[in-house]
Design a protein around this nucleic acid. Structure first.
Lengths: 194, 194
DNA sequence: AGGATCATGTAACCGGTTACATGATTAC
DNA sequence: GTAATCATGTAACCGGTTACATGATCCT
């Protein structure tokens, strides 16, 4: 599944321990594929069983020992295979709690629904800020990893950020239009509440 | 969780059997919260254990018997409670296989990535068609259910469809911009492939 | 004759979430 | 002193997916 390929993909930049992998995840890929620490540790051990990664213990005088994982040739091949083979049907997950609430929005009073839309907008604005923060660190990471073609790499990273920004912006626009329509609807009707 | 509230919400329109509930799901709410038949049957029995629904067997001369579920007052209260209490943090799920592929897009040749973007666009266009089909059936359903305030109900249903359409449209626009940028990038560089 | 639709479920699996457990070092 | 960070895991749970099982009727 996709988590393993996300991890293998990051490990192509260089060997890493689980804890560090999680940090890289959060700063690069989490807006596209999120992962928790426990998930990462579990997945690393299954990847090792499959022979896609190997690990060595690195002792440290200051702080606890690290288990450093490196991607193997087999892992590299598996990653490249996944990347080459575009799925006939992209798995997309239509499960959105907020939209479900809106579907049943007529059961709430107008004031309350508008408040929900406003909450929605503020959460989307928060999300936008997070995306901007991720974007700022991109240039740092591409230099840290000393990627061969950092420029090209960054182009694609920016594509994913752009996608996030554009969808958030359109969702905010949508919510604002909904609020406007609700207000118009109310003024044209004498009584909305049943 | 949300599935149970989606089901309770639909059962407020009237008693239904599992099979029929699934059909209503697909024609109304699936773009917002999808569910499979086995999930629905499982969830119906847990809702019954909780006392949120009751069931009776309806015998039929033609075809198999039906187990008709009705929402109880307890179920109605649970649904209304869920609707009233807006979650502090909306659970949203950032896991998108396509975007993960794009994140690692530099590892593919330009031609292949552009093909992926084009596949993406065609899948989004298919999705748009499905949304339009769902929208068409809305007026049929609101009359079938003899909803008290069908007009208001439909307003919110259209909000959810609008959201789907707007996000799909912006994603297509995004993909087209990405393709354009990739082509421009190539013409400004002598050699893209490493 | 064969596929779609109606109808109800069970079981196994898989992956994401949450809680638990431990313990050192560093920064305020 | 205490909160944050570094560091590695395990276990239980929860919900979504897939496969399996059964059988009638309806339409082509």
């Amino acid at each position: 599944m996709s988590l393993s390929y996300a991890m293998l993909g990051l490990l192509t930049y260089g060997p890493m321990n689980g804890y560090n992998l999680k940090k890289i995840f959060d700063k690069s890929i989490s807006h596209v594929w999120a992962a928790s620490l426990s998930q990462i540790y579990r997945e690393l051990s299954t990847l090792e069983k499959k022979g896609y990664v190997t690990s060595i213990i690195q002792k440290q005088e200051d702080g606890p020992d690290k288990r450093i994982y490196s991607i193997t040739d087999l892992g590299r091949d598996a990653f490249q295979d996944w990347l080459k083979n575009f799925p006939e049907q992209l798995s997309f997950y239509q499960r959105d709690e907020f939209m479900l609430r809106i579907f049943f929005g007529s059961r709430l009073e107008k004031k309350e629904i508008i408040k929900e839309f406003e909450h929605f907008i503020s959460q989307k604005l928060d999300h936008l800020k997070k995306l901007n923060e991720i974007e700022k660190t991109f240039n740092i990471y591409s230099s840290e990893f000393t990627v061969e073609s950092a420029e090209k790499e960054e182009l694609f990273w920016h594509f994913t950020i752009k996608q996030g920004k554009m969808t958030i912006e359109v969702l905010i626009k949508w919510a604002e239009e909904c609020i406007k329509q609700l207000e118009e609807y109310n003024s044209s009707k004498i009584n909305l509440k049943k």
